[in-house]
């Protein structure tokens, strides 16, 4: 009995230490979560502005039906030119690019498995195979998973900052959008967990390239009447020239927004996972303590019986 008493004691102290660690990790994640949420609000201002300008500019293009025309009708551009307007043109899809945003480390509950599972489903449902899919993996877990299964991982990146700043992410985002120009892929989906609130997140797969009426047009048409948003702009130098500048910037901001959103939900699920780990540890400790006390009690009882027994024998 004595040895087991010792054992239970040891287990209690080790569980307590684990609890301390998970508790600390939970606090860290929560702190990061509120930090990134603050950052997201300031990004939102930028995103809204750029979207409203895009909607305004691209409207005529979209309504022209230019977008729907396939690549055959638009003359091939000079390869070395960054082609903003190309982003509005649907090409024949030879390769589908899928950006999968996962975390680098574990300890985030079902965050990673959720993204990966749903992404696989998306690939399957769309009828893509490993040959015509190009994976762009942000985060180690996704990169390892898709490489192991023989997918073409065109680009992987590990170690995105906890609070990704656009300044630091810019190169990365540029690279991803740039692959569209290189025709590494002809359409781009971004798969990530969208942050709903600190307890839930939902999987999202958004088509970001080519920029189509679906990404910008639909909500615009709904908004238009009550907003009365239609100042007639003087364009400097020309509408097309401005679109050339704005469209890549828009695409980049979309990808960055997705990364930001994914990171937010990563922190949230990390915080939730650590919270439940801490709660679990507390449960274990209380049941262990009960066990410990019981064992101690019975040890004492045995001792007393022994003593009284010996006393009785002496008398």
């Amino acid at each position: 009995m004595g040895a087991s008493l010792q054992e239970v004691k040891r287990r209690i102290s080790s569980t307590k230490k684990t609890e301390q660690i998970t508790g600390a990790m939970q606090m860290v994640s929560t702190a990061k979560l509120s930090q990134i949420q603050r950052h997201t609000t300031s990004y939102q201002v930028y995103a809204n502005k750029i979207r409203s300008v895009i909607t305004h500019l691209a409207q005529s293009h979209l309504l022209d039906g230019k977008v729907v025309s396939d690549s055959a009708s638009t003359p091939k551009k000079d390869k070395n030119q960054v082609s903003g307007l190309d982003m509005l043109t649907k090409r024949n899809v030879k390769h589908t690019g899928i950006v999968v945003i996962t975390s680098d480390r574990g300890l985030v509950g079902s965050y990673n498995s959720n993204v990966i599972k749903q992404t696989m489903e998306l690939i399957k449902n769309a009828g893509h195979t490993a040959d015509d899919t190009v994976i762009i993996a942000l985060g180690g877990t996704g990169a390892d998973f898709f490489k192991k299964r023989g997918y073409n991982v065109a680009f992987e990146y590990r170690g995105i900052d906890d609070i990704p700043k656009f300044r630091d992410t810019q190169q990365l985002v540029k690279k991803i959008v740039g692959m569209y120009d290189d025709e590494t892929y002809d359409e781009l989906f971004v798969c990530y967990n969208h942050f709903v609130n600190s307890l839930t997140s939902e999987f999202r797969a958004e088509q970001m390239l080519p920029i189509s009426a679906i990404n910008i047009g639909s909500d615009n048409l709904a908004q238009k009447p009550e907003e009365g948003y239609a100042p007639v702009y003087e364009m400097e130098p020309s509408q097309d020239a401005i679109l050339e500048v704005v469209l890549p910037q828009y695409a980049e901001s979309l990808v960055y927004g997705a990364i930001l959103d994914a990171k937010t939900s990563e922190h949230a699920s990390s915080s939730t996972a650590m919270k439940s780990a801490t709660d679990n540890a507390k449960d274990i400790i209380s049941s262990l303590e009960l066990q410990f006390n019981r064992a101690r009690q019975s040890a004492i009882t045995t001792e007393i019986t022994e003593i009284t027994g010996a006393q009785a024998a002496l008398d």
Binding site: Y46, A47, F166, Y256
Partner: peptide, 10 residues
């Protein structure tokens, strides 16, 4: 009013 916004905020 001049307002300069970047992805990292105003």
């Amino acid at each position: 009013t001049v307002n300069i916004v970047t992805p990292d905020g105003s």
